[in-house]
């Protein structure tokens, strides 16, 4: 059976249509059925600690929320309406520019209405993540296809 997949080009076009993803400069690298991966080049305005030159955790959280969303889209096989229910991030290491952030997220469980995702973020070494995260989403896939709600 052919599983539906989300073409990378379509996902990338979607990313350019989302104002805040555009503002952040998020670059979608891979979208597979099992995971999504994106890069975020760092800029001086992303710092959360000017004196020590450390990147703000809000930048990492925004990246995670975005890429987890793509992982859910990828698992469903299309761009459906999703809403984040909750998100938890552990900041394992400080982030120092200039190396871009890479985030890889997977939707490890999909039910009729809920998607469970996890993500890791690193700079150079995937084995030394700067953050790991768990997120839960609601998705509207079923309601779009069902005849009755």
């Amino acid at each position: 059976m052919n599983e539906p997949t989300l073409p990378l080009a379509l996902a990338q076009r979607f990313a350019t249509l989302v104002p805040h993803m555009r503002e952040l400069g998020l670059r979608l690298l891979r979208v597979e059925r099992e995971f999504a991966e994106a890069a975020l080049p760092l800029r001086p305005e992303f710092l959360g600690d000017r004196e020590r030159g450390l990147v703000h955790t809000g930048v990492v959280t925004s990246l995670i929320d975005s890429v987890c969303g793509f992982a859910v889209h990828a698992r469903i096989g299309g761009l459906v309406t999703i809403a984040t229910l909750d998100l938890r991030v552990d900041y394992l290491r400080p982030v120092r520019p200039p190396q871009a952030l890479i985030c890889r997220a997977e939707c490890y469980r999909l039910t009729a209405r809920i998607a469970f995702a996890r993500a890791a973020v690193w700079q150079e070494d995937p084995g030394a993540p700067v953050a790991t995260s768990l997120a839960t989403f609601m998705h509207a896939t079923r309601s779009m296809h069902e005849e009755t709600p």
């Binding site: 249509l17 989302v18 104002p19 805040h20 993803m21 555009r22 503002e23 952040l24 959360g48 703000h56 955790t57 809000g58 930048v59 959280t61 925004s62 990246l63 995670i64 929320d65 975005s66 309406t81 984040t84 998100l87």
Partner: peptide
């Protein structure tokens, strides 16, 4: 401002913007 939007169809602010705002507020 428009640059904070995460879902242009609804429209709604990006979940990361709300999170980043709250993290910044805490800090």
């Amino acid at each position: 401002r428009e640059a904070l939007v995460g879902n242009p169809r609804l429209p709604a602010l990006h979940g990361g913007v709300v999170a980043g705002f709250m993290e910044s507020a805490a800090l």
